[in-house]
């Protein structure tokens, strides 16, 4: 037997669907206009970037934020890295 939904339930569903559609639109990939564009975007024809000089500042802060903490024991090592 078909169950009739209350009005507020229908409205809630509509909102959910609308929200879902918005997310879907946001997540879809634009269709490329040409094969050349497709290849450029998805198949590795990228510009190689040549730079004349490399500048870098003090990177101590970055080193701390990007490095992995050394585990104290083999057990910890195994747990964290799934050996």
């Amino acid at each position: 037997m078909t169950k009739l939904l209350e009005v507020d339930e229908v409205k809630k569903l509509e909102t959910q669907i609308q929200k879902g559609l918005e997310e879907y639109t946001h997540l879809t990939v634009d269709i490329p206009d040409s094969k050349k564009e497709y290849k450029r975007r998805f198949n590795l024809i990228n510009e190689e970037i040549n730079i004349d000089e490399v500048e870098f500042d003090d990177f101590t802060e970055d080193i701390f934020s990007l490095t992995v903490k050394i585990p104290d024991t083999k057990k910890e090592y195994r747990e964290r890295f799934g050996i």
Binding site: I49, F56, D62, I63, L66, T67
Partner: peptide
């Protein structure tokens, strides 16, 4: 750790 810090710098610089 060395590789990931270096890789991030490569990306930052470029």
């Amino acid at each position: 750790n060395l590789s990931i810090v270096f890789a991030n710098y490569v990306i930052k610089v470029f």
